[in-house]
Design a protein around this nucleic acid. Structure first.
Length: 243
DNA sequence: AAGTATTTCAACCGCAAACCA
DNA sequence: TTGGTTTGCGGTTGAAATACT
C-alpha cells in the first residue's frame, strides 16, 4: 500500500475524536488560541497531529458552526456558486456563514450532484431542489432573480458577521422593476441606469439600515459577484453548461 | 431476523501556497 | 534567493448508519 500516514508514524492517535479530546481542544483554544497548530497538540496534551486538531476545530468544534441539514436556499446557493467557482469549496464556504468546505463538499457529492444529474436526465434544469421539479414554464424564459426567495446572501467581510445583511434586506431596498427586468450584457446602458438607481437607493437607505455602506463600494466586485450568483442563471452566464 | 448493498460524513492524505529566517 | 516549516485546500477513504432483499 501507500506510504505510512504521518500521524501513525509519529505514534499519534487517529480516527474519530472522543468527547474528552474535543473538550481538551476547546478548552485549550479558548485559553490560548491557535496560533501554531503544529505545536498545539503537544501543548494541550493531545496525542493528535496538528493537522488533525485543526481539521477537528474548523469542521466541528468552532462555535460558529451551523449544524443540521442544509436548507433548500443554501443548496441552491451552493449550486449557483459551483457553476461559477467549480470545486473551490473553501470559496463557496466563505459565502455560506457557518458552513464548512468539507460539509459543502460532502453535500455536493452525496446530494446535489446526484440530484442535478437526475434532473438533467429528466430534461429538467437546476431548479426544483426542494423536490419540486415540476415547473414547466421556465425552460425558455429568461431567468430573473427571485425576490421571494429567502436566500441569504451576505455583503460582509469574512471576519465581521455584523456587516451581514440578508437577501430580504437587499430586496427591501429595491423596487420591483429592478428585479423583474432581465440584466443582460448587451444592454449595458440600461444596466448602468439600473445600477445607478440601485446605488442611489442604497445611499438613501444607508441611514436606515445598519450595514456598512462603504463596504459595498470597497468590495464592489465581490458585491456584484454575490448579486449575480444569487440568481439561478443569468443570461451572461448562459454559455456555462448546465448539469 | 439476518445478510448484503448503499449512503453518509468525519477524518485523513498529499500537494501547493504562504510564511519566515 | 533559498530552503525549511506551517497552513490551507481539494480529493479520497472507510466506518457507521440506513435501506433493501
Amino acid at each position: 500500500m501507500g506510504r505510512a500516514p504521518c500521524c501513525e508514524k509519529m505514534g499519534m492517535k487517529r480516527g474519530p475524536w472522543t468527547p474528552e479530546e474535543d473538550q481538551i481542544l476547546i478548552n485549550y483554544i479558548h485559553l490560548y488560541g491557535h496560533s501554531n497548530w503544529r505545536a498545539l497538540p503537544k501543548q494541550a496534551g493531545l496525542l493528535r497531529c496538528g493537522k488533525s486538531c485543526r481539521l477537528r476545530w474548523i469542521n466541528y468544534l468552532r462555535p460558529d458552526i451551523k449544524r443540521g441539514n442544509f436548507t433548500p436556499q443554501e443548496e441552491q446557493t451552493i449550486i449557483n456558486l459551483h457553476e461559477v467557482l467549480g470545486n473551490r469549496w473553501s470559496a463557496i464556504a466563505a459565502k455560506l456563514p457557518g458552513r464548512t468546505d468539507n460539509e459543502i463538499k460532502n453535500v455536493w457529492h452525496t446530494h446535489l450532484k446526484k440530484r442535478l444529474n437526475k434532473n438533467q436526465n429528466n430534461g429538467g434544469d437546476i431548479k426544483g431542489l426542494n423536490g419540486s421539479n415540476e415547473t414547466t414554464h421556465e425552460d425558455k424564459e429568461p431567468v430573473m432573480v427571485d425576490t421571494t426567495s429567502p436566500q441569504q446572501f451576505s455583503v460582509m467581510s469574512d471576519n465581521n458577521k455584523d456587516d451581514m445583511i440578508s437577501y430580504e434586506d437587499i430586496s427591501a431596498l429595491v423596487d420591483e422593476s429592478f428585479w423583474s427586468d432581465v440584466v443582460s450584457v448587451d444592454n449595458s446602458s440600461n444596466n448602468e441606469k439600473k445600477i445607478r438607481g440601485w446605488e442611489g437607493l442604497l445611499e438613501q437607505n444607508s441611514k436606515r439600515y445598519s450595514y456598512n455602506n462603504s463596504k459595498l463600494y470597497n468590495d464592489d466586485m465581490e458585491f456584484w459577484f454575490e448579486l449575480f450568483t444569487s440568481s439561478r442563471r443569468i443570461e451572461a452566464f448562459s454559455d456555462i453548461p448546465e448539469f
